[in-house]
């Protein structure tokens, strides 16, 4: 459990990081918090010739508001996402998702950008980002790039990021009035990756569900939207008989697998179970906090 020899660089600008990545011709890995990468290195499952550490680049861990968006630097630690007053106020779903990431020690080191770029299909923060319809911004040798979150994840541990692109910022729409949210997860132990997790965002006006997005984790090769369930509820009055039918609509949108922790059947069953609870919780939560954005 010792990594192969590698070079290490800690550039002080994104431009320098990109230059190092280009020069390494695909043999480099970016290290953010290192919480997923270091075990892969130690087990020699990743064998990069160079690690480019983003820790010394100023500004990559900023959290700020900009024109109705919450902008979160990619190097922002999970613990900061969980506790930051701006995140808690304007993207409480994201703060809640961050609180489910592993344990304190990991949350103090791991970053939201690192987790998103790592693209573990059971990771929590990407679900919140998906439910909130966030944008991701990267910089690369050909300039800046931007993706809606729905176009970012391509498969397990696979994203739209090209080889020398550096994810620098996540943009999350600020919570508006009449919006509700919920995050629910089942894991073997507290802090483990999700066997199934659900993030819900919705807008409720006059007893009607005007809009909603439901993101599921742990039940497919990437974070997925429950499109059929969303369609069944969008524009409807919130009737139990409609909500209670949504679990049956998940089938087309998920494709869970089996592993040592749970069978595909189990993941499917608890995703359905979580969904109704999360939907109702999000519905009830509308108006709970008054956002100022």
């Amino acid at each position: 459990m010792k990594p192969v020899n590698f070079d290490y660089a800690a550039p002080e600008s994104v431009a320098d990081a990109i230059r190092l990545l280009v020069e390494a011709r695909g043999e480099a890995k970016i290290i953010a918090g290192g919480q997923s990468l270091l075990p892969l290195l130690n087990m020699r499952m990743a064998r990069p010739s160079l690690l480019v550490d983003l820790a010394r680049i100023p500004g990559l861990d900023e959290v700020r508001l900009s024109d109705g968006w919450l902008e979160i630097g990619a190097m922002t630690r999970h613990a900061v996402v969980e506790a930051h007053p701006l995140v808690r106020r304007h993207a409480p779903l994201l703060a809640a998702a961050a609180s489910f990431v592993a344990h304190h020690q990991v949350r103090n080191r791991g970053t939201i950008g690192g987790s998103t770029a790592h693209a573990d299909p059971a990771a929590e923060e990407p679900l919140a980002l998906l439910a909130l319809d966030s944008e991701l911004i990267a910089e690369g040798p050909d300039g800046a790039a931007k993706w809606p979150i729905g176009a970012f994840f391509r498969g397990p541990m696979t994203t739209a990021l090209a080889d020398a692109q550096v994810l620098v910022k996540l943009r999350v729409p600020c919570r508006g009035p009449s919006e509700g949210w919920a995050f629910r997860e089942i894991s073997r132990r507290r802090g483990d990756l999700a066997l199934a997790a659900v993030a819900v965002w919705l807008r409720r006006e006059d007893g009607i569900c005007r809009d909603l997005r439901v993101a599921l984790g742990g039940v497919a090769d990437r974070p997925v939207r429950a499109k059929a369930a969303e369609a069944a509820l969008r524009g409807c009055a919130w009737e139990p008989q409609i909500v209670d039918k949504t679990p049956a609509l998940l089938e087309a949108d998920i494709a869970p697998g089996s592993d040592v922790h749970a069978t595909a059947d189990y993941r499917r069953a608890v995703a359905r179970e979580l969904l109704v609870h999360a939907l109702n919780e999000a519905w009830e939560r509308v108006g709970e906090l008054s956002p100022h954005c």
């Binding site: 089942i186 073997r188 066997l195 922790h261 749970a262 069978t263 059947d265 189990y266 069953a269 608890v270």
Partner: peptide, 8 residues
Amino acid sequence: MTPALLLA
């Protein structure tokens, strides 16, 4: 007695 076993 994992959750998956119990649910089954």
